[in-house]
Design a protein around this nucleic acid. Structure first.
Length: 860
RNA sequence: GCCCUUGUGGCGGAAUGGUAGACGCGGCAGACUCAAAAUCUGCUUUCUGCAAGGAAGUGGGGGUUCGAGUCCCUCCAAGGGCACCA
């Protein structure tokens, strides 16, 4: 019987309105039910949502709806990471105010998200640029200051000359600003820092407890924290005349076992020794400038050869004071790591080898293979490989020892005699949070001539941004504002100046998940709500945040705990990083990029839809505006509906991999929605019958229950693509069963059950269609208020299995036997089979392996 | 340079060490139709064979095992992270 097509244009807005009106997704603390907090990384309100958002939020929504149906009390909130430079750039380029621009974008994007039918609790929505949000950030910062977690110090910073602001190390990518792409310069500035390094060890150790994080992300954080164990000690230092230099030269090394191979020392050009000597040494001064000019770009570093400038000083070898090691200022030694000074062991370090070769310094091998084979260091250093056992040579009391043993022997001797100290070093730097921008959270501090730096008292918070800022010249509009920064000292009430730096926006996103538990609370986090909801049970976002956002959040949670705020040390119990959305690229013969919506396939090749030009199909890449390979979610939702878009996002490709958006795939998803609609309508008109255990309905009932069990497991494991393939199987089974619909009441009952199962099982992915189907099947209660179907164990279990029979490991036959058939019987039955006998070629079986219900393998 | 991940049909991909290619896309054939679309049914790893069947097969090579896409070693390719970090 013909039914009308499923009309998403009517159904989707209707159900979205129903859910909103019924407040279906508003969460309340409820101690009687297990809680589940699902969170997707909140978006930056850039203007419009893109397909990456659609994929991210669809995944989160499937989890939220699934958990909800399974009886969890689900929290699934949404908000806006709303501070940041694009808003300010819009202000500079188009003369709009960042605030208006941001809130307009939020309005647009919220409408788009709503059209996706997400099960979000919109009552908890906030934007990080709301003063009601950032006032708590300011209050916490004041607490952090009191707790010693904040430092203000003059430091060499990464300065982005285009954005005119400071960047954290994490925001410098290949020596360029992460947003502007401009080569980063070094500058000295007074900056605010959060002392993330205080937590380096803890952040590292706790990574092992994050069992439900991708191994890859944990490893990236581990490398970023970069712990190394080494020895710090001081060389006696003499000048060219042999006169001792006070203070000596303190170095840090992880290879103290190679000390007997030392042939020079090197310090950073920014090392105090180098700085001091450059005052009287013009050549050194020039060298320092040359190194500084090289910058930090990867390209320059790659090309730069190891260069040094002799300081005219000599370090005395601790075990042989007659050995004088020349000291250089060198371009490959970094002031920011260890002591900014090293000893060079050219035989066992590539950089030291390059340097020694250039300046014709001795290369003394002190480590060699265990078998005693000669070490050749004339063409390069000898570097022992991982796990390779090596032994010390040419090293007096260390000779014959392994590297590890030599390290510990050397450390012991040096600690006893030379004031050396074993130290742990981290690559991780403190988090510089000052930004010289307008559109960020003001740092709540006042500079007073008498009292110095004074935190703004909490009762005077929030320090809000002036609305009348001007964006007509580069630099910080807060600094240029005629009145804003002029205030009075909270301490002495004398005229004073406000801090004009604002926070790095990564601070805003470091605790928003906690604010969602109690977004209207007078405190940053309500103690009861925080305790109930935290941690986030499932966090979903792009892998591009593996270091920055996720490491800052882990630190910030600990900082909050330290100042008594409700939180948990590890805010994200389980993390999932989804892949990107990609699309083929198209360009004209002139090389202009063409939108997919303008590309048409015609007679086996691609042409421009309006101009008819021939198009070249390029590689499949991440959707980006620059290559125009973008598909607009609004267009797709209008044409096919949100359910189709959601379904396609989850089909086929595993969620962690990149997904290629294809028009054919979207069409196929759309056809599937229509197919389900037809099948459900066909079942709905059948006489209602109970799904009993009648023999002729049994096969379909089994399919329903087996698929229900499988899909439940798939969704628990976030294997959305497999869940969908199982939904196809269930649909195929239902479709096949419809042919026999008139045969018996038992079949009709089984068909109804299958249709109901299908409806409920697909609901997390296609919530609107599911509601329509559920209604057609005669239910007054909507799907959102209906429990997840329970698979009956009796129907999930099979009573017959088809098992393979192998002869000498090759599959030769198969047989269908009762489930649980014992090994002897299986062996006997297998041996009796004609195909098996033929394959055995008359040889007697030497051994028979029987894995019950799986396989029989005959070895002969 | 170091570290990590991934390599399975024409394509996306499935597969607790136990029948490789489920499911979907695409393709082919058929049904319905005056015709087309939509829909439905079948076939679709490769080679060989009329067929029953046989052979090969999960990036290459080797190993462990009764049995390897899965575990180990090694090489190759693609992607990602870190990078003068002493």
């Amino acid at each position: 019987m013909a039914v009308e097509r499923y009309n998403h244009r009517e159904a989707e807005p209707k159900w979205q309105a129903h859910w909103a009106q019924a407040k279906s997704f508003e969460a309340k603390e409820d101690a009687s039910r297990p809680k589940y907090y699902v969170l997707e990384m909140f978006p930056y309100p850039s203007g419009r949502i893109h397909m990456g958002h659609v994929r991210n939020y669809t995944m989160g929504d499937v989890i939220a709806r699934f958990r909800r149906a399974c009886g969890y009390n689900v929290l699934h909130p949404m908000g806006w990471d709303a501070f940041g430079m694009p808003a300010e750039n819009a202000a500079i380029e188009r003369g709009v105010h960042p605030k208006g621009w941001t809130y307009d974008n939020i309005k647009t994007m919220k409408g788009q998200l709503k059209s996706m039918g997400l099960s979000l609790d919109w009552s908890r929505e906030f934007a990080t640029c709301d003063p009601s949000y950032y006032q708590h950030e300011q209050a916490m910062f004041v607490d952090f200051m009191k707790a010693g977690l904040v430092e203000r110090r003059v430091s060499q910073v990464n300065w982005d000359p285009v954005d005119q602001t400071v960047l954290a190390n994490e925001q410098v990518i290949d020596g360029k600003g992460w947003r502007s792409g401009a080569p980063v310069e070094k500058r000295e500035l007074a900056q605010w820092f959060l002392k993330i390094t205080d937590y380096a060890q803890e952040l590292l150790e706790a990574l092992d407890t994050l069992k439900d994080w991708p191994e890859k992300v944990r490893l990236m954080q581990k490398n970023w924290i970069g712990r190394s164990e080494g020895l710090r000690f001081t060389f006696d230092l003499v000048d060219g005349a042999g006169k001792p230099v006070e203070g000596g030269l303190t170095v840090y090394t992880t290879r103290h076992d190679t000390l007997f191979g030392a042939s020079f020392c090197a310090v950073s050009v920014d090392h105090p020794l180098s700085k001091k000597l450059s005052e009287s040494d013009k050549g050194l001064d020039a060298f320092r400038k040359e190194v500084a000019a090289l910058g930090t770009s990867e390209e320059n570093i790659e090309r730069a050869e190891k260069k040094g400038y002799p300081l005219g000083l000599y370090a005395l070898h601790p075990f042989d004071k007659t050995r004088k090691l020349p000291v250089y200022a060198a371009n490959f030694v970094l002031m920011g790591y260890g002591e900014g000074a090293i000893f060079g062991c050219p035989a066992h370090d590539q950089r030291d080898w390059d340097f020694a070769t250039k300046y014709q310094l001795p290369i003394i091998p002190v480590v060699g293979p265990k078998d005693g084979a000669a070490v050749d260091v004339s063409k390069g250093p000898y570097l022992e490989k991982d796990g390779e056992e090596a032994k010390l040579i040419n090293s007096e009391f260390l000779n014959g020892m392994s590297v590890e043993a030599a390290k510990s022997e050397m450390a012991m001797r040096m600690e006893a005699t030379s004031g050396a100290k074993r130290v742990v070093n981290f690559r991780l730097r403190d988090w510089g949070v000052s930004r010289q921008r307008y559109w960020g959270c003001p740092i709540p501090v006042v500079h007073c001539k008498t009292c110095g730096i004074v935190p703004v008292p909490k009762e005077q918070l929030p320090v809000t941004l002036p609305e009348d800022a001007k964006f007509d010249k580069p630099g910080n509009p807060l600094l240029h504002h005629p009145t804003w920064r002029h205030t009075h000292c909270p301490n002495c009430n004398q005229p004073a100046e406000r801090e004009t730096d604002t926070f790095d926006t990564f601070i805003d996103s470091s605790w928003y998940y906690a604010r969602f538990t109690s977004p209207q609370d007078a405190n940053p986090v309500n103690a009861v709500a925080g305790k109930y909801w935290l941690p986030v049970d499932q966090y979903i976002g792009g892998v591009e945040h593996a270091i920055l956002h996720l490491l800052y959040s882990r630190f910030y949670a600990r900082a909050m705990l330290k100042v008594g705020q409700p939180n948990v040390a590890e805010p994200f119990a389980s993390l999932f990083t989804q892949g990107m959305v990609t699309h083929a690229t198209y360009r004209t013969e002139k090389g202009e990029w063409v939108l997919p919506s303008e590309a048409l396939q015609k007679d086996g090749h691609w042409v421009h839809a309006t101009t008819g030009e021939n198009l070249e199909v390029g590689s499949i890449e991440k959707m980006s505006k620059s290559k125009k390979n973008v598909v607009d979610p609004d267009t797709i939702i209008a044409a096919y509906g949100a359910d189709t878009a959601r379904w396609f996002m989850l089909s086929d490709t595993p969620p962690e991999r990149d997904l290629e958006w294809t028009e054919a795939g979207a069409e196929a998803s759309w056809r599937f929605t229509q197919r389900v609609w037809r099948l459900v309508n066909d079942v709905a008109v059948l006489p209602k019958a109970a799904a009993d255990m009648g023999a002729d309905g049994l096969a379909l009932r089994r399919a329903s229950h087996q698929n229900a069990a499988a899909i439940t497991e798939n969704l628990n494991g976030l294997n959305f693509n497999v869940a969908i393939s199982n939904l196809y199987k269930l649909t195929n089974a239902l479709s096949a069963g419809l042919g026999d619909a008139q045969k018996s009441a038992s079949i009709q009952g089984a068909l109804r059950e299958a249709a109901e199962f299908l409806t409920l099982l697909m609901a997390p992915m296609m919530p609107h269609l599911a509601e329509e189907c559920w209604h057609v099947l005669g239910h007054a209660t909507p799907v959102v208020d209906t429990a997840w179907p329970k698979a009956l164990p009796d129907l999930v279990a099979v009573d017959e299995v088809t098992i393979a029979i192998q002869v000498n490991g090759k599959r030769r036959d198969e047989m269908t036997v009762a489930k649980g058939l014992d090994q002897k019987a299986a062996e006997a039955q297998a041996l009796a089979r004609e195909n098996v006998q033929r394959a055995m070629e008359g040889k007697p079986p030497r051994k028979v392996i029987v894995v019950p219900d799986r396989i029989v393998n005959i070895v002969c």
